[in-house]
């Protein structure tokens, strides 16, 4: 168990809701949920969530900390914003789901090999290198995330797709060497580093 997780359990022993309000993006909205279930019914991947948003909101209020932070439900969010558009009380549900996912990740509680959690990190690391996404490397990182052997298998299985994209000039093998970049890469990276420091600092202060 991570130190941060232990510290948070200590601090918010009596109320997981308060913990979410203080540490999860847009978490202060959770108490406003009226349990109508429109979000759960509107979610395009709803059937794949162990606990759809409405349930997660109730579970947070019922102090079900382990169950909420341990589920991979939030990672099923496609960011379609149906739930936000339809919520009668205007809860920013998409952002709360992202916030819960990130918080669970920061505490080291994400299920191993959760594919969207992995992809999300791969995407972020990819864009951090040059300030812009390198799609070729993004695709390759996804194929090879479970090792070289599996990577080759994945690449072979998607060979035709890759060829189609190259033919349409919508994928470029040369992107492997360098690729598109922002010019002020050093300023860009310093900016992000500073933002990360501020955000991590806020979480530590909450400890």
């Amino acid at each position: 168990m991570s130190d941060l997780n232990t510290a948070m359990i200590e601090k918010y022993r009596s109320s997981f809701l308060k913990e979410v309000e203080a540490n999860v993006e847009e978490g202060e909205w959770v108490k406003m949920c009226m349990q109508c279930g429109v979000c759960s019914g509107s979610c395009p991947l709803g059937k794949h969530w162990d606990h759809p948003p409405q349930e997660l909101f109730m579970m947070i209020r019922a102090n079900k900390r382990d169950e909420v932070l341990g589920t991979d439900s939030m990672w099923m969010c496609t960011s379609c914003y149906n739930c936000i558009a339809r919520c009668p009380r205007g809860l920013p549900i998409t952002h709360i789901m992202h916030g819960l996912a990130v918080y669970s990740k920061r505490l080291g509680l994400v299920q191993k090999k959760q594919p969207t959690a992995e992809f999300s990190q791969i995407f972020w690391d990819n864009l951090m290198k040059k300030g812009r996404v390198n799609e070729l490397k993004l695709g390759l990182s996804m194929y090879f995330k479970d090792g070289f052997g599996q990577g080759i298998k994945n690449a072979m299985a998607n060979q035709k797709l890759g060829q189609n994209m190259m033919k349409a000039k919508r994928m470029n093998a040369m992107e492997f060497f360098g690729g598109h970049s922002v010019k002020d890469l050093s300023g860009f990276q310093k900016m992000v580093k500073k933002a990360q420091e501020i955000e991590e600092g806020n979480l530590k202060d909450a400890k």
């Binding site: 992202h98 990130v102 990740k105 992809f119 990190q121 972020w124 864009l127 933002a195």
Partner: peptide, 20 residues
């Protein structure tokens, strides 16, 4: 010199402030 916006999936690696 625009940069990537983080798209809809960057949140998982970036959190809130770095993404914004």
């Amino acid at each position: 010199d625009w940069n990537c916006c983080g798209a809809s999936i960057g949140y998982g690696g970036g959190g809130e402030l770095p993404r914004l």
